[in-house]
Amino acid sequence: MSATVDILVPFYGDAALLREAVASVLAQHDDRWRLTVVDDHADDPGELAAWFATIGDERVRYLPNPANLGLTGNFNRCLELVEHDLAVLMGCDDRLLPNYVGTVLDVHADHPDAGIIQPGVRVIDRDGRPVRTLVDQAKRHVYAPRVSGRRTMAGEQLAISLLRGDWLYFPSLAWRAATITSVRFRPDLRVIQDLALLMELVQRGERLVVDETLCFEYRRHAASESSATAFDGSRFTEAGTFFADTAARLREHGWPRAARVARRHLSSRIFALTMLPKVLRQRAGVGALTRHVFGRA
């Protein structure tokens, strides 16, 4: 039986950008996909439901939550809906390029036991134009490993790489269904859930395949949850606790080098340092940032 990609979109944002995301799925060259939008946001889900009804494609589902689950709860609801071979937790403001489904299915066919697939990503701004940011340039040129074609990573090597600087684009990842449905997002985390989930899977022995084929557009704009929590400092309070906890667990797991990288969490502290001038101007979140930057590693 041919493999199929479950594309799940936890929605809580801009309806216009969601329509762009949906259109990018409908434009796939490979038709082996199913799209499920789980709405945890709309004041009037009837309007969006009517729009989805006009699509007329049985592979597209629109499911408004009867009660608001919150960001983490909605992500976990999406995990409950996975039924096919691969799953993607696509951002509601991101876009697939037309070759996305075909690309990840090709990688899956060559590496059927790999739990995580990272394809090539282009970063776009609020208006859909390609953009280069300091964060993304650091991901690409400082933290990401060199890849020519494809590369497989696993074990402590992968843990160290991600803890030095999380260079993955979580909404672009394709997951083997058995891998992603075996975990849940942590309700005590707001921003760093993706890295926490990845580290849990890496410790379990899951492998990551990186394929450089460009097929995904990741939208970065100031309205994101991560941007807001960076400015108020809560992102870094959460990060400090996470890295300390992760360092302890990695020591117990027998990965001392990865534990040292987690304890230092240098890239997270550098990012906090870059945010400090802006935070000082608005005089909010200063204490959390300074503790994260200058506190003991």
Score class of each variant (00 low, 15 high):
Ala49Trp: 01
Arg176Lys: 15
Gly120Phe: 02
Gly102Phe: 10
Leu97Thr: 02
Arg129Asp: 14
Leu173Met: 15
Gly115Val: 04
Trp175Gln: 08
Leu162Pro: 01
Asp136Asn: 15
Trp175Leu: 09
Asn99Lys: 00
Arg132Pro: 00
Asp94Leu: 09
Gly128Ala: 09
Gly128Asp: 07
Pro64Tyr: 01
Ala87Leu: 06
Leu81Met: 14
Pro64Gln: 03
Asp93Trp: 06
Asp110Cys: 03
Leu173Phe: 09
Pro171Glu: 04
Asp57Ala: 12
Thr103Ser: 12
Ser148Thr: 14
Leu158Gln: 06
Leu105Val: 07
Ala109His: 12
Arg95Tyr: 04
Leu89Glu: 02
Asn74Ala: 13
Phe170Thr: 12
Asn76Leu: 08
Gly115Asn: 05
Asp113Glu: 14
Ala53Met: 04
Pro119Phe: 07
Leu105Tyr: 07
Leu162Asp: 05
Trp167Phe: 15
Val88Leu: 13
Arg132Asn: 11
Leu105Arg: 11
Leu81Glu: 13
Gly102Thr: 05
Pro98Arg: 07
Val121Tyr: 08
Pro171Leu: 05
Val121Ser: 12
Ala154Gly: 01
Gln157Leu: 04
Arg150Asn: 05
Ser172Cys: 12
His108Glu: 06
Leu105Ala: 03
Pro64Cys: 07
Asp85Lys: 06
Ala159Gln: 10
His141Gly: 00
Val147Tyr: 10
Leu89Gln: 08
Leu134Ile: 12
Cys92Arg: 01
Val123Ile: 15
Leu71Pro: 01
Pro119Cys: 08
Trp167Thr: 08
Asn65Leu: 13
Ser172Asp: 04
Met153Pro: 00
Lys139Phe: 13
Pro171Cys: 05
Asp106Arg: 14
Ala177Asp: 05
Leu163Lys: 04
Gly56Gln: 10
Leu79Ile: 09
Asp93Thr: 14
Leu134Ala: 13
Gly73Ile: 11
Ile160Pro: 00
Gln157Ala: 14
Val121Trp: 08
Pro145Ala: 08
Leu81Gln: 10
Gly128Asn: 08
Gly70Trp: 03
Leu134Gln: 11
Leu96His: 11
Gly70His: 08
Leu162Asn: 08
Thr72Arg: 04
Leu86Thr: 02
Leu81Ile: 06
Tyr100Trp: 11
Ala178Thr: 13
Leu97Phe: 06
Leu69Thr: 11
Arg77Trp: 01
Asp57Cys: 10
Ala177Cys: 03
Val60His: 08
Leu158Glu: 04
Arg77Pro: 00
Met153Gln: 09
Met90Tyr: 05
Val147His: 12
Val121Ile: 13
Arg122Gln: 15
Leu134Glu: 14
Gly102Cys: 02
Cys92Lys: 01
Asn99Phe: 03
Pro119Met: 09
Asp57His: 06
Glu47Ala: 14
